[in-house]
């Protein structure tokens, strides 16, 4: 199977945007500009970068949730775009996504038990009893409870909804999870709990993560490698310690300098 579980080659994606005084003009904007990356088996690659630099677009394109203009994505050596529909559906179970906007990604008319269990049902993993048990266990691991299965998404807080999305992705025992700002709505304790859970599952099942985050403190804790995006391009990449120690790009240097509270928190520690 090789060292890399996921390889992306020369991904390009443009959007047409309305522009001009009355919105009748259009401009083409490159959200992904020749992006390539390799995800090592069992490792975590963090993607950081400016708001609007193309991170979520990259996430969706990697998982074929959005069509590319050009480029290819290989999962375990096979080009996802060339898989027949039924096989792509099959592989989806191994390629999961935790979405940036939890509320928008949860069906408001489904109960949490159904939302988290839906994938198990679709992919026919286990009998009804086993499916239920797996849902309950996963909800507990993200800090929710069995009783939450019967509730609807709107009955939860923002951070609780984010955890429903995490449970839905992880319950399937996937091979690759693309996490788009997975812990941004969580208090620092739950955040630590979720990050440890991600690491535990990584060790148990050799899971690999693409971890999109704007929080460079969190990234430092979870990532092996890091890629920095700027205006649709990957402008810098490398092992996590190297980049934090000696960032070569000005934008990366600014990112590290702008972590809030450095002075004040250093004083109180």
């Amino acid at each position: 199977m090789g060292e890399f579980v996921l390889k992306a080659r020369d991904l390009n994606k443009s959007y047409i945007q309305r522009s001009g005084r009355f919105g009748f003009g259009t401009t083409k904007v490159k959200a992904l500009d020749n992006v390539s990356l390799d995800l090592k088996h069992g490792s975590t690659l963090a993607v950081v970068g400016e708001s609007g630099s193309g991170k979520s677009t990259l996430a969706r394109c990697l998982l074929q949730l959005q069509p590319l203009d050009s480029g290819s994505v290989l999962f375990q050596g096979r080009d996802l775009a060339e898989l027949p529909a039924h096989e792509l559906r099959e592989q989806r179970r191994h390629l999961q996504m935790i979405f940036q906007d939890p509320f928008a990604s949860l069906n408001p008319r489904m109960r949490v038990g159904e939302i988290v269990g839906e994938g198990l049902l679709i992919h026919r993993l286990g009998n009804q009893e086993e499916q239920r048990e797996r849902v309950v266990q996963m909800l507990k691991r993200v800090g929710l409870s069995e009783a939450d299965m019967l509730k609807y998404p709107h009955e939860f807080s923002g951070g609780q909804r984010q955890r429903i999305g995490i449970a839905r992705a992880l319950v399937l025992n996937p091979k690759v999870v693309v996490c788009d700002e997975p812990v941004s709505a969580l208090d620092v304790s739950i955040q630590a709990q979720i990050l440890l859970l991600l690491k535990e599952l990584q060790q148990e099942m050799a899971l690999s993560y693409i971890f999109i985050s704007h929080d460079l403190r969190v990234v430092r804790h979870v990532a092996d490698e890091i890629a920095v995006m700027y205006q649709g391009k990957i402008v810098e990449r490398g092992a996590i310690d190297d980049i934090y120690r000696s960032p070569s790009q000005e934008y990366t240097q600014n990112l590290l300098k702008s972590i809030p509270g450095q002075r004040a928190l250093a004083l109180s520690n």
Binding site: E50, L255, S258, I259, P260
Partner: peptide
């Protein structure tokens, strides 16, 4: 309410 959770640190600043 959590106004900058989706912003990188430079835009957040």
């Amino acid at each position: 309410d959590e106004p900058t959770t989706a912003l990188d640190v430079t835009v957040q600043a």
